[in-house]
Design a binder for these strands. Structure first.
Lengths: 228, 228
DNA sequence: TAGGCATAAATTGTATACAATATGATTTAC
DNA sequence: GTAAATCATATTGTATACAATTTATGCCTA
C-alpha cells in the first residue's frame, strides 16, 4: 500500500522525515521498493530531491540502494540484527552513565512527559507510534549526555532497531517496556550514574530476549536476493 | 593549492576516495572550501556526481555542508575531537577482542604486511601515507572481527581522527606508534583476546596523550565561523 | 574615507532532458 | 512446449538548463 499523503514543495528533510516515520511505524514493509518517480509524485518534488533523501536514508541504514535497480526499505539479516543490538550494548550504557551526570530538572520533566506519551500510545494500541516514541526516548538520553557523535550512531542504530523489530519481533501484541524507562529516569534524576548504566544494559538485554534472533529470517522478497 | 590531478569519467566512489585520500594525507586543510564545479572539472564529471560525493563525505563526517554556502573540509572542534576518541575507546577494544577470536593465518599475514608498509612510509618520511595506513590498520581489525556495523562507525571515526590529528597533533614529526600495532598483531595471532583488548585500549590512550586536546583550537578560516 | 545601498557576478538549489541499464513481453529456434 | 533471443517499456544514471541565493563590486552619500 502506497503512502496516501500528497504534499508539495517538500524539502529533502521533509521527505526523509516522512519516509523514516513510515518505516518506523511499519507502514511500509522491509524490502518494499521505493521508486523515485512515485516518491517524487507523493511529495510533489522532482527526482533530484528524492534521490538525495534516499541516499541520506541509505547512510542511516534504513534504505538499501542497488545500482541501476533502485532503493528498497532495508531488510536486516539475522546477523545484522544481532550486530545492531551488540553495538547498542556497547554504546548506550555508557551514554546513560554520562547522561546521569549532566541531567537537569528540565531534562527530567521532558523525559517524564515522554513516558506519558508512550503510555498513552500503548493504551490506544498505537503500536507503531509507541515503538517510535520508545526509540526517541533512547535518543533523548544520548542528547542529554551531550555526545554528538555517539548520538549520531545511536540514531542509526535505533532506526535499524525498528526494522529489526518489524522482522523479528516474537509477540507482536505485547509491548510493555515502559517500566524500564521509568526506572531509568529515576536513576538519572537521582544522579545514580552507575545504576543508570546497569539499568540500560539490562534494558537492552531484555529487548534482545524479546526478539527471535536465533532462527532464520523470513523469506526474501525476490529470488534475486537469494543468489546475489 | 588545488588538487593537481585531472581525470575524467570518474565514478562517485572515485571522487569520494580521491578527496578522502587528500584529506587523510593533509593535502587539503580543514576549512577548505570545495566548490562544486571546481571539483567537477578536476575529475571530469558534472556537478551532479560531485554533489553526491560531497553528501557522502558529509555523512562520514569529513565534510560540512552549509545550505546555499557550499561544502567545506570539516574542522572538528575541541569537543568533537575528544568525542571521536571517546567513541573509539568505546568500540575498538571490544573489536580487538572479537578479532582475536576469529583471526586466520591469512589475516595475520595481511596485518604483518600492513605493518611493513607503515614502517616503510615512516622511513621515507611520508607522514600523510603513514597516517592513512595507520588508520587502515584499525579498520582491518574491525573487518577481521566481522562486525559490519561497528566497522562502519569506525570508518567514520578514523576518518575524523585524521582531521583531528591535522588540527591538534602536538609534534608533527614524531610518528612512531607501530610498536603498538606489532604487539597487537602478536596478541591476535596467539588468540589472546583479553590481551588484545587491553593493548587496544592502551594504544588509544597513547594516541590521545599525543594530541593537544586541552587548549583552544587554531583560528577559524573565516570570521563568519566565529559568530555563526 | 567609511558606510550603506544597488547592481553584477559567482555559486548553489532544483527541475528537466537525455543516456544507460534493467525488466518484462513477444517471438523464434529447436 | 521449452528455452533462448529480441524487442519494447519502465526505471535509474548523468548532464544540462534554469531559479534562488549568496558574495563581490562599484557607486553614492554623509
Amino acid at each position: 500500500m502506497p503512502i496516501t499523503v500528497q504534499n508539495s514543495n517538500s524539502t529533502v528533510e521533509d521527505i526523509v522525515a516522512r519516509l523514516t516515520e513510515a518505516v518506523h511505524e511499519h507502514k511500509v514493509q522491509p524490502g518494499t521498493k521505493l521508486r523515485e518517480d512515485e516518491v517524487g509524485e507523493i511529495f510533489g518534488v522532482s527526482r533530484t530531491l528524492v534521490r538525495q533523501a534516499l541516499h541520506t536514508m541509505e547512510h542511516s541504514g534504513l534504505v538499501t540502494i542497488e545500482r541501476n535497480r533502485g532503493a528498497f526499505v532495508a531488510k536486516p539479516t539475522l546477523k545484522e540484527a544481532r550486530e545492531v543490538f551488540e553495538a547498542r550494548a556497547l554504546l548506550e550504557p555508557q551514554t546513560a552513565h554520562a547522561a546521569a551526570l549532566r541531567t537537569t530538572a528540565d531534562d527530567i520533566a521532558a523525559l517524564e512527559r515522554h513516558i506519558e506519551n508512550e503510555h498513552r500510545a500503548i493504551e490506544r494500541e498505537q503500536a507503531g507510534l509507541a515503538l517510535k516514541l520508545s526509540g526517541d526516548f533512547h535518543l533523548e538520553i544520548a542528547r542529554i549526555a551531550d555526545q554528538k557523535i555517539v548520538e549520531g550512531f545511536l540514531h542509526q542504530l535505533i532506526s535499524r532497531s525498528s526494522l529489526v523489530i518489524a522482522l523479528y519481533w516474537r509477540r507482536r501484541n505485547a509491548l510493555c517496556e515502559s517500566n524500564a524507562h521509568h526506572a531509568l529516569v529515576k536513576a538519572l534524576r537521582d544522579r545514580q550514574a552507575d545504576e543508570a548504566e546497569e539499568l540500560m544494559k539490562q534494558h537492552l538485554l531484555d529487548l534482545l530476549t524479546q526478539l527471535d534472533l536465533r532462527e532464520r529470517p523470513s523469506g526474501p522478497t525476490s529470488l534475486r536476493d537469494v543468489f546475489s
